[in-house]
Amino acid sequence: MKVQILVSKWCPVCPQAEAVWKQAAEKVPMELQVLDVADREGREIVSNLRIKTVPAIVVDGALKTVGAQPLGEVLKMLGVQ
């Protein structure tokens, strides 16, 4: 599973989302990438998926959610009960 977190330097919520997803990556096998929307790769994903807000979570190429969720909710989203 490939998880990409799209963030921005000006986003006050992004560090919280990044921390939660890093915790989830310790419990669930995944390839985790944190991409700034100001960088080329981040801009391409934002454009292709028409993402309007950050943090945005992309799982296996599909937009899964936006915003920051608690760890329990993230694990449920990943199929861990």
Rank of each mutant, 00 (worst) to 15 (best):
V20S: 01
D60W: 05
S47Q: 12
T65S: 12
P12S: 14
K27M: 10
Q81T: 13
L78F: 03
M1H: 14
C14L: 06
C14N: 10
P15Y: 08
D60S: 11
G72P: 03
L35N: 03
I57P: 01
L75H: 10
C11N: 05
E31D: 09
V37K: 01
K64V: 10
I57G: 00
V28E: 08
E26S: 08
A24S: 06
L6Y: 05
V54R: 10
K64S: 14
V59Q: 12
L71F: 07
K27S: 05
Q69E: 09
V37R: 01
M1Q: 09
V34Q: 09
S8V: 09
M30Y: 07
M1E: 10
A24M: 03
L35I: 11
V59I: 15
L75V: 11
K27L: 08
L32M: 01
P15C: 05
V59R: 15
V20K: 14
W10E: 15
P55C: 01
P12D: 07
K9D: 13
L75W: 14
V74Q: 06
P12T: 13
L35M: 15
V20H: 02
K27H: 00
M77C: 04
L32H: 01
V54L: 08
G42L: 13
G42F: 13
V13Q: 14
A19R: 14
K52D: 10
N48L: 14
K64F: 02
Q33R: 04
Q16P: 00
